[in-house]
Amino acid sequence: MTATDTPTRRGPGAATRLAARAGGGAVRLGLLLTALFWLVPTIGLLISSLRGPADISTSGWWRVFTDPAQLTLHNYTELMGNGTITHALLNSVLITVPVTVLVIVIGAMAGYAFAWLEFPGRDWLFLLLIGLLVVPIQVALIPVTKLYATFGIFGSLLGVILFHTAFGLPFAIFLLRNFFAEIPRELLEAGRLDGAGELRLFARVVVPLGGPAIASLAIFQFLWVWNDMLVALIFANSGSAPLTVALQEQTRQFGDNIDVLSSGAFLSMAIPLAVFFAFQRQFVSGITAGAVK
């Protein structure tokens, strides 16, 4: 067979390319419709928070598309003037931010120790830590309540912060330890040869490389604590209750303050969404870290 007789490999035909494009377009359309379907409750809550109490009580939120004059910021003005809601919002910040910082700092240091430091019983302690991941919160409610009563911190912000920190650390240490263990040993050895101690290695090498995982953990922890109501209902009093508890108490007068509920519920959801989108790139990097070598 001569060179001229060699069969040439043809590319995909026009029909094949058209089918591939149509299939890709159908997938994108399906994903778009699914996303819009899941966003309908959020859109409805946003629109309801921008309507007056009379409009909310007499018609559905979709009526705003035929009567956009219903939209107003009066609900949010009233919300910011509600001392109970604003104080609860401040409590949510005072609980969520310290818990997130404590879990990240302690979890990162413990994760580095489990990954790269040699000490007696390290493997057994890590197995015990993994076992703590399956312990439900409900098991510890009564013992911790008695402990808090003994130390006089029951009903305070400190008690809620300590409880969330304690139950957030096992997952944080487990996640960061596995991520830090993937750091090349040569980088740490080079730092030790240059005279860097473990604390300096942790701050200058491990933390910058573990940024995506730390950002992912921060998002998870922030969302868990911000949206929690069970722990706050038990360990917080009226002066230290977060926004979730305040909104739950407002539902007892649902017919009289539906405007406060709608705007408060959307505000409670908007803040963690803003945090997620602010760290979205780091979150995706942390999720996909280690997937490709």
Rank of each mutant, 00 (worst) to 15 (best):
A3G: 04
T4K: 05
T4I: 13
D5Y: 06
T8D: 06
G11E: 10
G11P: 07
G13H: 05
G13I: 06
T16N: 03
R17N: 05
L18Y: 10
L18W: 12
A20S: 07
R21H: 08
A22M: 07
A22F: 11
A26N: 00
R28T: 09
T34C: 06
F37P: 00
W38G: 01
V40K: 04
I43P: 03
I43H: 04
L45F: 01
L46H: 00
I47E: 00
L50S: 07
G52T: 06
S57E: 04
S59N: 07
G60E: 01
R63W: 13
F65Q: 04
F65R: 04
F65N: 02
D67V: 10
D67W: 11
P68F: 02
Q70D: 05
L71M: 04
E78A: 13
N82A: 05
I85F: 13
H87Y: 03
H87S: 14
A88P: 05
I95R: 12
V101R: 03
I104G: 02
I106P: 03
I106Y: 00
M109G: 11
G111I: 08
F114H: 03
F114A: 10
D123I: 01
F126C: 10
P136E: 10
V139R: 04
L141D: 03
I142C: 00
K146G: 06
L147R: 08
L147K: 00
A149K: 14
G152K: 01
I153D: 05
F154Q: 11
G155T: 01
G155C: 09
G155I: 05
L157S: 00
L162M: 06
H164K: 13
H164N: 13
H164W: 15
F167L: 12
P170N: 05
P170G: 02
P170A: 11
I173L: 14
F174N: 12
F174M: 03
R177S: 14
F179K: 02
E182P: 04
R185A: 13
R185G: 09
E186N: 11
E186D: 15
E189V: 14
A190C: 07
L193R: 04
E198F: 02
L199T: 14
F202K: 03
A203C: 08
A203G: 13
G210K: 06
G211I: 10
A213D: 05
I214Q: 10
S216I: 03
A218D: 02
I219Q: 04
L223H: 12
W224E: 08
N227Q: 15
D228E: 12
M229Y: 15
L230G: 01
V231R: 08
N237Q: 11
S238V: 06
G239K: 09
P242W: 12
T244N: 06
T244I: 03
A246D: 12
L247F: 06
L247H: 11
Q248H: 10
Q248E: 11
E249Q: 14
Q253I: 08
S262E: 07
L267G: 08
A270C: 03
A274E: 08
A274K: 06
R281F: 01
V284M: 12
G286F: 02
I287T: 06
T288C: 10
T288R: 07
A291Y: 09
